[in-house]
């Protein structure tokens, strides 16, 4: 409870952080309590009620946000879709971030052969188109939620790896790192004390930017049939479903798009606040 009140006291007065956390709380609630919140079964098809417009645009109150091409209730699908999108976005970013930070620090701190191998790996991976790589991996592993997260995590580490490596290279020449060595501290203690804390702000900003990419990337994979099973609602697959109807039934693609946008926005707002509050030099102004 003390942590909560501490975070609360920090957030007060910073409206963007407040708005961000409110939005994200809504999304998390939707994911946690989807069966309670969704008015319909997200998979139930009512072909006679296909492509109904949302309630405020001439539709019925039965389907508040309208229906898709199979007559499924959009609101229910968005509420359930929060589960997959949030899980994929956060888990893949976490996996990519941890891998990238680890390899980047190793590469920057130890140099030599480790550095060459890691950077070559990054180059090879960058040279390969993401879809091609994902295709190959998913073909071997088979579709499914876990494998989507795995693929996105594995392809996403490169950006962290390269940025963290270059930051590490500049940090390890800092005089306070030299002072730490002069005191007799080893490399791992230096990494924990001096390198990691100074890398976190950059990593956090990268991560918040990447969540959006991950949610979209899951959509691309699902669209190609290499993601999760098509009947499990996810914002990405809803977006690509609605693509074909954008001129006749705009709501099918628009609402999942808005859901993605708001989620990404909330994560970015929280990320900015987190980065600033981790910097003691800016603390007084927060």
């Amino acid at each position: 409870m003390r942590t909560v009140s501490f975070i609360w006291s920090r957030m007060r007065g910073n409206y963007s952080a407040l708005v961000g956390s409110l939005l994200l709380t809504c999304v998390v609630m939707a994911a946690l309590f989807s069966p309670l919140l969704a008015p319909h079964d997200p998979r139930a098809q009512f072909l006679e009620r296909r492509l109904r417009p949302p309630a405020f645009a001439g539709g019925s109150s039965e389907n508040l946000l309208g229906t898709d091409q199979l007559g499924r209730d959009l609101l229910s699908r968005i509420v359930y879709g929060a589960r997959v999108s949030l899980l994929v976005g956060l888990a893949a970013v976490m996996l990519a971030g941890l891998t990238g930070i680890f390899l980047g620090i190793m590469s920057g701190m130890f140099g030599g052969a480790i550095d060459r191998i890691v950077m070559q790996l990054a180059d090879v991976q960058l040279a390969m188109p993401f879809i091609l790589f994902a295709l190959a991996v998913m073909a071997v592993l088979g579709p499914g939620l876990r494998n989507v997260i795995l693929v996105l995590g594995v392809t996403g580490w490169v950006i962290y790896g390269r940025v963290v490596r270059s930051e590490t290279l500049s940090l390890r020449e800092k005089e306070y790192v030299e002072a730490s060595r002069a005191l007799g501290h080893g490399r791992f203690k230096i990494i924990r004390r001096h390198i990691l804390p100074n890398i976190m702000p950059t990593a956090i900003v990268l991560a918040t930017l990447q969540v959006a990419n991950m949610i979209i990337a899951e959509a691309s994979l699902s669209f190609l049939g290499l993601g999760i099973e098509p009947d499990i609602p996810s914002w990405g697959s809803m977006l690509s479903d609605g693509r074909g109807y954008i001129s006749t039934a705009w709501w099918v693609a628009t609402f999942p798009g808005i859901a993605i946008m708001l989620t990404v926005l909330s994560i970015n707002l929280i990320g900015d606040w987190l980065r600033d509050s981790l910097d003691p030099r800016l603390k007084s102004s927060i």
Partner: peptide
């Protein structure tokens, strides 16, 4: 041995702005 010897040999740096980690009290 070097780690132990370093406790007896210390250094004061030129730039007091670069020699202290900004994130440490």
């Amino acid at each position: 041995e070097l780690r132990e010897a370093r406790r007896e040999m210390q250094i004061v740096f030129q730039d007091p702005y670069a020699s202290l980690n900004p994130r440490m009290k």
